[in-house]
Amino acid sequence: MKALIVGANGNLGKLCVLRLRQHPGCEVIALSRSEMNLETDLAIRTALDAAGNFDLLINCAAWTDVDACETDPAKANQVNGHAVGVMAKVAAQGGARMIHISTDYVFDGSQTAPYREEDPTGPIGAYGASKLLGEQKLLAASPDHLALRVSWLFGSAAGGFPLWVVRQAMKSDTLSVVSDKWGSPTGVTDAAEAIVFLAFHGREARGVLHFCNSGQASWHDWGQCALDQAVKAGLPLKTTQLGETTMEALAAKAGWKARRPIHSTLCCDRYAALRGEKPRPWQDAVADYVENDLSASLQASEL
């Protein structure tokens, strides 16, 4: 099988490249931002053309800066929406399947129960709207394509929220994080593993599919879990207990431009049925990350 990975230099894309290359018989072509500019359709077509024939296209590229999307929705729609459509069409015309990574931000966040694939979408910001546009363009190009919605990615090279919490806790005595925003943290290694599974085995998966680690958390739960693990690992923390704050307060302090959904836990029953088992709890993924990868991230970012 020949797989093309777009966004191959990103946190998730890099891992996908690495994992797929470990599969015998799988040829991987990695396209990073410098090799494929998503802002013009012509550049996308040229880059895909140059890559030749392929069986699978995995798109991990996106413009994820939620606030920046809010100020430049045209660019957001191009990169997260129209560009996906172009890739999806080229793939469909060449008889290839496409797995496109989407987001929990397509929902408005008003539903307290975990969101199922068929629940109505309703993005409340430009980022979510552009990602939803991408899903629509993807499935319009071919019903065989797959939009994989993931939420709250963390871990690996970029580290993400747990790394941020630990680093802050090493620097300051008090630290407060938001306790009124809910969702499902997802380890990026878990997500990459799921993508590899879907690439080889879950071929019947098409349309929309949710993937995240099991369980629900607030940012506060998530961060506290990371801190608890850091204590176990013997990291020199200045504080081990997180204070609480609200989304409203943080939005004002950090100058947020975009609204974020309050509840965005995803229901992974469909994925679990395909796979035969549920994804592991998010707490395990956090523990795994702190135990195995966080030290290297800290080291890479040490001053």
Binding site: S32, S34, S295, S297, Q299, A300
Partner: peptide, 30 residues
């Protein structure tokens, strides 16, 4: 070299992609 310099308190299962994320040159340079 990375493996050797990682702190002993943790189990360093260092993955190569880690070291490359020191800062986002791949976006800021273009």
């Amino acid at each position: 070299p990375r493996n050797r310099s990682a702190p002993q308190t943790l189990n360093p299962r260092f993955s190569p992609e880690m070291a490359r994320h020191r800062y986002p040159f791949e976006t800021l340079e273009p």
